[in-house]
Computed example of a mutant assay.
Amino acid sequence: MAMTNYPITLKPVYSSPVDGIPEGIQIPEGWRLSWHQAETLKALRDPAVDVVFNVAMTGDGKSLAAYLHLLQGEGSAIGLYPTNELARDQEAQIKDYIAKFKPIHNPRVARLSGAELEIYAESEGLGRVLDLLF
């Protein structure tokens, strides 16, 4: 049986850019923020908001949206990632953001895996990490 070639053309994901730069935001020249990034920053800055879920597509700038307040010299954050490879990728991405945004306080970036935490706990005589957590 002959195979039929059936081409499918997918358009890239489009996130609407925000009009202008939100007040108090400094971004590198030539950059634009997406609407979801500006709204994420707005929610993170709102003391009445406890939890923010940004459900934009993969590769659409969710991490930048989450860390944008740090890149403006505000607050602190902990990022949790489900795999060591994703944690390594995000560590490099965040360091790149720091190099490009040049925040005044030079944020510290440290990656900690379960294996590293286990070694630390053992070296400090704290027992097993799982025993500490439960």
Rank of each mutant, 00 (worst) to 15 (best):
Y6G: 07
T9R: 11
L10P: 01
P12L: 10
P12E: 11
Y14P: 07
Y14I: 13
V18F: 15
G20E: 10
G20S: 13
I21P: 10
P22G: 12
P22W: 14
E23D: 15
E23I: 11
G24V: 12
I25M: 14
Q26D: 13
E29T: 13
E29H: 11
W31F: 14
W31R: 08
R32T: 15
L33A: 07
L33E: 05
S34C: 09
W35E: 15
A38T: 09
T40R: 08
L41V: 00
L41N: 02
K42I: 03
K42F: 08
L44G: 03
L44E: 03
R45L: 08
D46Q: 07
D46R: 04
D46E: 03
P47E: 10
D50I: 06
D50C: 09
V51E: 02
V52I: 01
F53G: 08
F53I: 13
F53T: 10
V55I: 12
M57S: 15
T58W: 06
G59W: 04
G59I: 06
D60Y: 03
S63D: 11
L68A: 05
H69C: 01
H69G: 02
L70E: 02
L70G: 02
L70I: 08
L70S: 07
L71A: 01
L71N: 01
G73I: 02
A77G: 00
G79S: 05
P82L: 01
D89H: 10
Q90F: 02
E91H: 04
A92S: 12
Q93C: 04
Y97V: 02
Y97D: 05
A99Q: 10
K100C: 08
F101M: 00
F101E: 02
K102E: 12
P103L: 00
I104L: 09
N106L: 00
P107T: 08
R108M: 12
A110D: 12
R111D: 05
L112K: 08
A115Q: 14
E116K: 04
E116C: 06
I119H: 14
E122D: 11
G125C: 08
G125K: 07
G125A: 07
L126I: 09
L126V: 10
G127D: 13
G127R: 13
V129S: 06
V129R: 08
L133M: 09
F134E: 10
